[in-house]
């Protein structure tokens, strides 16, 4: 048991107002966990102004960007950092993380919106929407009749909170869900869960492949020409992967050749990543601008629920939820 915790909340105006944590939002979320009331105090900062002074006195930190390389020195009392997002590749490698600090992320906070966006992408692929839109642009009336999705196979590469949320909907529509995962061997919504090493055996079985792996040194470049080539001819790909996981050139080639029938691709700001402008016109490709996976009305509420759950755990001396494995990087 800990009597009292001081938590510093660091906002970052560069990631947009939707991600701003205000005292009012904290009060609303705290009302859902009344047992922590009076047992913690918050300080607020933004864009790292006066960060040193704020973090020096803090037991915990809630934020996204926080001079992680110096955090061991700047936050001598810190034993917990709660991130406001799920994909933490901007903090890798985690060599800066001292063993006394538990790092937790916000995986799960995107539900149920993320599952809906991924499942939408699956349905779009089965119904050839990326290809039909490509024909539309060329003013071509080219009927493409699909077969129903029930009984088809969806392979989720990197089954976690996002993929699991999509799998829940996929099962409802009679889809066979096969997955790879590093940390789990079964999932309530998946018919089969295999280790990551099984990927190449599983790819030829899938009608649709969904990439929901985090970007880590192990996953960088993991989906290249060889993996795409192993996919079933005419299969579709939905990618939520960060830049660097999929080989864009190999993907474009597979779409142009018709080896893949379509792709729905979550694209982070192309001015902030390596992105060949020709990729804009890639045939049979639809981009989502990395916003369809968040419900703005619910995302930060969900993040704060995760934060308060972990705050209660910290006060009660229980292990944290959503803890990041420093060796795996997620």
């Amino acid at each position: 048991m800990t009597e009292h915790l001081r938590i510093h909340i660091e906002n970052d105006s560069t990631i947009g107002p939707l991600f701003e944590i205000t005292p009012e939002m904290i009060a609303r979320a705290e009302a859902r966990r009344p047992e922590v009331k009076g047992r913690w105090t918050a300080s607020y900062g933004r864009d790292l102004v006066e960060f040193e002074r704020n973090v020096a006195a803090a037991d915990g930190l809630l934020g996204w960007q926080f001079r992680h390389a110096e955090i061991d020195r700047l936050g001598p009392r810190l034993h917990w950092i709660q991130l406001t997002g799920a994909g933490l590749d901007h903090l890798l490698p985690l060599k800066w993380l001292p063993p006394r600090i538990a790092l937790t992320n916000a995986r799960g906070a995107h539900k149920p919106k993320i599952g809906e966006a991924l499942f939408m992408s699956v349905l779009m692929l089965n119904n050839f929407i990326p290809a039909l839109v490509h024909h539309q642009r060329a003013r071509r009336w080219n009927q493409m009749f699909a077969t129903g999705i029930a009984g088809k196979t969806l392979l989720i590469v990197g089954l976690g909170e996002a993929g699991g949320d999509a799998a829940r909907l996929a099962r409802t529509f009679g889809i066979r869900v096969v997955a790879t995962a590093r940390r789990t061997t079964s999932h309530i919504a998946a018919h089969e869960v295999h280790p990551p090493s099984a990927l190449r055996d599983l790819l030829p079985q899938a009608d649709i492949v969904m990439l929901t792996v985090p970007l880590t040194p192990q996953t960088r470049g993991m989906f290249g020409a060889r993996e795409i080539g192993l996919m079933k001819p005419g299969a579709g790909l939905v990618s939520l992967a960060r830049a660097g996981i999929v080989d864009d050139v190999a993907l474009k080639d597979a779409l142009a050749r018709g080896h893949l029938s379509g792709c729905v691709y979550d694209l982070e700001d192309p001015s902030h990543r390596q992105f060949d402008t020709e990729m804009w016109d890639c045939p049979n490709m639809i981009y989502l601008p990395h916003s369809q996976t968040n419900d703005p009305a619910r995302f930060m509420e969900n993040v704060l629920d995760i934060f308060f759950d972990n705050l209660a755990r910290a006060l009660g001396g229980e292990p944290f939820a959503n803890r990041v494995d420093p060796n795996l990087g997620y």
Partner: peptide, 17 residues
């Protein structure tokens, strides 16, 4: 989003559940 893709325009466009 498709219209914006044709215009090579990237913009966050949030939507609800």
């Amino acid at each position: 989003l498709v219209s914006r893709q044709w215009d090579r325009h990237w913009e966050l466009d949030y939507s609800e559940t």
